[in-house]
Nucleic acid binder design. Structure first.
Lengths: 392, 392
DNA sequence: GATAATTTAGATACAAGCTAAATATATTGC
DNA sequence: GCAATATATTTAGCTTGTATCTAAATTATC
């Protein structure tokens, strides 16, 4: 029996409050008149909503201004001015990798105020120790941001494993299974935080659409292309998960001609330069070395980059053919270097797909997942504001 | 400037009316008390909403019952009983193929009451003639259903071309470009109908989720697998379109090992049986013949089916790997015959993907697209009820 | 066959939230 | 100082909801 929630008059206030808050979030300061124009509400309603929001701590009213606003030589009675109380709460964005966890703290505007990275002692440490390291990264980032754990409204966390729509980790991979219930329960108990787990490539897509090269693109694919290829897919502005959260996994590349594996750019550069008798295989720097050598004009390195371009073109084309995104962004550790590949990839695409997307490289660098995690947490906060309790 | 619509008190009635109508749609008859239980509204509100809906023609009140209801030996004051006025309006579902157009008429419950197919004189006839044929199919289907054009609330129409979220046809393909503006404008002018264009595979997915083997599955892929492979993809209960509506196109199969083209099952069966020196290539019946021969134990035919199974397993695996659907349905002209392929496909899947979906065959046969088109039109009607005007 | 129990209907009171219109209040410019 | 202007505030009224009480219709029981 679907017991739908009845729409009571209070629903109107919730809807309108969210709408007003949405406008205030996107402007520096807003007057009542501006809010009327942008929400379609009458002044009485706008004021009532604003007073509500002030009481709940989400916005605040500015005092009479002394200095002249340059852009607004106004006459008439001065308007009441409202602004977002951006420090009323904070969110955490986590990038939990195999070796390192990075935490970022942002205010309600999404301004990142603090960061901290902590490395794990080893890759096979027990879950409790792992959670401890994550917690330490969070605390340090909060300190750096000048705030504390009780001000955190939500935590977005990215891991390199399939995560379904409800934030549950697909348990086929032992390594990450510890994080599913464990992390959420631990941080809930320690600080009362709500943890929103997501796949790292999915968060990268959120981040890229928010503050990367795909701003405002509704049909966007982000390829994390460092060691192993993984995709975060947004269609019509929504993340794709699939039944068990494994959407964006690229195992099918094993079967694609001219590709054959889901190895990433750094991995390929290393393999192929080793095969060429280049720098010893396994070297951390050898991938970067290939790009440097190519920049210096080394023919062997250039040949490797051409092979990588061909391969990436096939990968991107296969995705573009089936999902028809407007844009594909290459992100991850190699994003900076990958810029030189773009002309080659773009030129090859029409050979492999009838619907070639725009291809760009992420400007977010290492922060791509944490930025996305922050966005994910903010999405949650914004969806639940202003009912969400700020004070604690 | 996003001029959001203000939430006025009338919004509540709209929301609640939709919710009440949704319950009535899924039950045969509903009493006030049942509606209270399932909507969470109070009796006063339920009655007010129902009276509204009666006035607008969407539901009607049943008279006092004479006969005993078997399942309900009730005491107490008899309840008022409401039911959907399922004949208050109708929808059309069209399957517009290259050779033939089929129209289906359904009432508000989705019961299909009439069908009609009309063939085109040739494939290169002018747009006006083509639209004429479509119109004739519509009129005949409406007659068969015992209703008329003025009772049509919406028309869902499927074509074998990419259609974007707004119902615009990707103009790369000349053949279909005529249908974009032309069909919509013509039917609007002739009858005042609202035409909702969609890709045929997408409609097949809607149909399959509604009344096929994928009922209620949120992450569902339907493969139209007759002549050319095309996919309709639902993720989280929503259709995927991509930027230009080309999502679900399978051109990437050209690059997949062991596949190499997006030829469908019937096409492959014909090709391979001709190569074997089987029935002359091009014969309409030769595809079916392969399945018949295989059923009779013919080794050559069995070998062809094994090859087809391997190929389909690779196709399904590639999709499953990237989108992680819960289920993949094989539909289209060959769906009936394809049942024998299922064990083979299912057995091969784990070799090609870590996330093998359930694979089934569509029970909807030729009607798969029209059923989906009806569902598409009903979705529109239900989303706009009860504001949508019934009388004309 | 009258009475009690039960179930639903209908009526009344009231609260939340919105609009609309009239009135009041600061500020600028002359 | 006064008009013009832009905004704020107040008041009345509408829609829609909930909650509560009373009335009506039917079945079960004595």
């Amino acid at each position: 029996m679907p017991h739908a929630a009845a729409a009571t008059p209070q629903l109107l206030r919730r809807v309108n409050a969210r709408s007003v808050l949405g406008v205030i979030r996107t402007t520096d300061v807003a007057t009542g008149t501006e809010l009327m124009a942008r929400t379609g509400l009458t002044r009485a309603s706008v004021i009532a909503v604003c007073e509500d929001l002030i009481r709940r701590g989400w916005i605040r009213e500015l005092e009479a201004r002394d200095e002249e606003q340059p852009g607004s030589p106004r006459k008439g009675r001065p308007a009441r001015r409202f602004e977002l109380n951006s420090g009323a709460g904070f969110v955490l964005g986590l990038d939990i990798g195999a070796a390192t966890t990075t935490a970022a703290v942002a205010d309600l505007r999404g301004t990142i105020l603090g960061r901290s990275s902590e490395s794990f002692r080893a890759t096979d440490i027990p879950a409790a120790e792992r959670i401890d390291v994550v917690d330490r990264a969070c605390r340090r980032a909060l300190s750096a941001a000048g705030t504390g754990p009780d001000k955190v409204l939500a935590v977005g966390a990215g891991i390199a494993a399939p995560v379904d729509r409800d934030g549950n980790v697909l348990v086929t991979q032992h390594f990450w299974s510890l994080f599913d219930v464990g992390l959420r329960a631990a941080l809930k108990e320690l600080h009362g935080w709500t943890v929103l787990l997501e796949n790292d490539a999915n968060l990268a897509a959120l981040g890229e659409r928010w503050r990367g090269s795909g701003t405002g693109v509704d049909d966007l694919v982000v390829l994390l292309a460092g060691e192993r290829l993984g995709a975060g897919v947004m269609e019509s502005g929504r993340l794709l998960h699939g039944r068990g959260g494994a959407a964006g996994e690229m195992g099918y590349l094993d079967l694609v001609e001219g590709v054959g594996s889901s190895d990433g750019i750094a991995s390929l550069a290393r393999q192929w330069s080793a095969a060429d008798g280049g720098p010893a295989a396994g070297g951390e720097a050898s991938a970067r070395r290939v790009f440097e050598d190519a920049a210096a004009g080394d023919p062997a390195a250039l040949a490797i980059l051409a092979r990588i371009s061909d391969r990436m073109a096939r990968v991107i084309a296969s995705v573009a053919s089936f999902l028809n995104p407007e844009q594909v962004v290459i992100g991850g550790a190699v994003a900076e270097s990958a810029g030189v590949l773009l002309p080659g990839i773009t030129a090859l695409l029409p050979r492999f797909t009838a619907t070639p997307p725009r291809v760009t490289v992420s400007p977010l660098g290492d922060a791509i997942v944490t930025v996305g995690a922050v966005r994910h947490a903010l999405d949650y906060v914004e969806a639940n504001a202003p009912e969400l309790e700020l004070a604690r």
